[in-house]
């Protein structure tokens, strides 16, 4: 999409001006931000009538969407709900459903300065020294998010809340595998284990859906905002906690279970302080296996976008190569859980 083209510039400038509450503005910078296999993010710098500058991020779905990812208008509603619940997010600015403006629905949020790429953060000694504090903060944010529970008014466009988050997700993953072109015995083993050990249905809360350090903006060692809400859904409170701790997201520090930045216990501490709930170690282990299994299945879906969806992206193709990593991790976690060993370092 050519956001910087002349046909788009004028209607976009009008929209941004309206959203920022000024009669007009001039877009002095329109540039694509790196990252995101699902969404497109653009930074817009607007020169206001008083010559001040305001930076916003324009977020829109890619042409080929991912199953279960929310369209821009819905993601915007989730972002607002999270902000209202006290979760630190980039300030939602405005949403545009009119395709006449840029050709697709999009929304605007304030630009937040900082770094979110874990492999970059891991090279910053000051960030690593503050790792546990950052994780504590992240746990607090998650606790606040989980105060949002299903009711008739809350986010009505989300798929209905599951009654039994684990079992329903297992059934969905199996249904996907049945449509896949070849069998995956390792994933089947993990799913069978998850089915046989599924905990009784617990409370259902709003889940971020891709809760990990890579979606936290950190500015000068201080976490400032949680990003990327397009995969939000109703689910089990442990889902996001376990997702953030997956080996896959620890990058060069696999020993640091808290997203490669610090201790998992720091994340749980912040979460506990906000929710008043303690984490049952067995449940944590269960959802660790669950997360890796789910990510293995999602990686198959991602690579299917590349293979049959016609989306020629090397990034997507490489995600598919990760399937074996999550499979082996899930098998190893099951092995450990079965042996009754302590759950990792």
């Amino acid at each position: 999409m050519a956001l910087a083209s002349d046909e788009v510039r004028e209607p976009l400038e009008r929209f941004v001006a309206g959203a920022l509450g000024v009669p007009s503005c001039e877009l002095t910078k329109v540039a694509r931000l790196a990252g995101g296999t699902v969404q497109d993010n653009w930074i817009l710098e607007a020169r206001m009538p008083d010559q001040s500058r305001h930076r916003v991020v324009l977020r829109t779905g890619r042409v080929v969407g991912v199953k279960d990812s929310l369209p821009a208008e819905q993601e915007y509603a989730v972002l607002r709900a999270a902000a209202n619940a006290g979760v630190c997010v980039p300030r939602p600015v405005a949403v545009c459903s009119d395709p006449a403006v840029i050709g697709r629905p999009f929304f605007l949020m304030d630009f937040v300065e900082g770094e979110s790429r874990p492999w970059k953060l891991q090279r910053m000694p000051a960030v690593m020294a503050a790792g546990d504090e950052i994780l504590d903060w992240v746990g607090v944010q998650l606790g606040r998010l989980q105060a949002i529970v299903p009711d008739r008014q809350a986010l009505p466009f989300l798929r209905p809340a599951p009654r039994d988050a684990a079992r329903e997700a297992i059934a969905e993953m199996r249904a996907y595998l049945d449509r896949h072109d070849h069998a995956h015995p390792a994933i089947e083993c993990a799913l069978r284990w998850l089915e046989r050990h599924a905990p009784p249905p617990g409370p259902i809360v709003l889940c971020h859906g891709d809760f990990r350090i890579g979606n936290v903006i950190i500015d000068h060692c201080r976490p400032v905002a949680l990003l990327d809400w397009e995969l939000a859904r109703w689910g089990d409170p442990h889902e996001d906690l376990a997702w953030a701790c997956m080996r896959f997201f620890r990058f060069s520090r696999p020993d640091l279970e808290g997203g490669g930045l610090g201790a998992r216990s720091a994340l749980l501490r912040g979460w506990r302080a906000t929710t008043g709930r303690a984490v049952d170690p067995w449940l944590m282990r269960y959802w660790d296996v669950f997360s890796n299994t789910r990510w293995a299945v999602v990686s198959l879906q991602q690579v299917a976008r590349h293979v049959v969806g016609g989306e020629d992206s090397l990034e997507l193709a490489l995600v598919g190569l990760g399937t074996a990593e999550m499979e082996l991790e899930a098998l190893a976690l099951i092995e450990r859980a079965c042996a009754g060993m302590p759950g990792g370092r």
């Binding site: 390792a186 083993c189 190569l321 990760g322 074996a324 082996l328 098998l331």
Partner: peptide
């Protein structure tokens, strides 16, 4: 043993 072996072999190639 089988699922570990097959998965290890895939990972030996990919990562």
């Amino acid at each position: 043993r089988f699922v570990f072996e097959v998965t290890r072999a895939k990972l030996a190639e990919s990562n």
